[in-house]
């Protein structure tokens, strides 16, 4: 069971993650992503939407697989900026690790 933090999306704004709620989970980003890896990056964006902060922290290492290639951002039909969201999540996770 995963705990949900309803304020997670708001907390992430300070790290430049402010378009997660625009995503409607179509999966275009995961289909085009060259990593071809477990619904990445859509899965991470979904975690943000539902406030699954622990899931993000548990799977944090996967965020650094992203190549910052921008293909997902270029093709997202909602301009949700998935590539930049992943970058913002890295900033957030790094700040948490450094604080710990």
């Amino acid at each position: 069971m995963a705990l949900v933090d309803p304020d997670f999306a708001a907390e992430l704004k300070a790290y430049g993650v402010d378009t997660a709620l625009d995503c409607f989970n179509c999966g275009t980003c995961a289909a085009i992503c060259p990593l071809n890896f477990e619904h990445f990056p859509r899965k991470m964006i979904r975690y943000v939407q539902v406030g699954a902060k622990q899931k993000i922290l548990q799977q944090a290492q996967d965020l650094w697989r992203c190549l910052h290639c921008g293909l997902c951002t270029r093709t997202c039909p909602r301009q949700a900026n998935p590539g930049e969201l992943i970058l913002g999540l890295r900033r957030y996770v790094l700040a948490q690790f450094r604080r710990a």
Partner: peptide, 20 residues
């Protein structure tokens, strides 16, 4: 719509870099 060469993965995973 160019494909990434995998270069950015080099510093955290040379194996991932090779795959891409």
């Amino acid at each position: 719509f160019t494909s990434c060469c995998g270069g950015p993965a080099e510093s955290v995973s040379p194996a991932l870099n090779r795959e891409i």
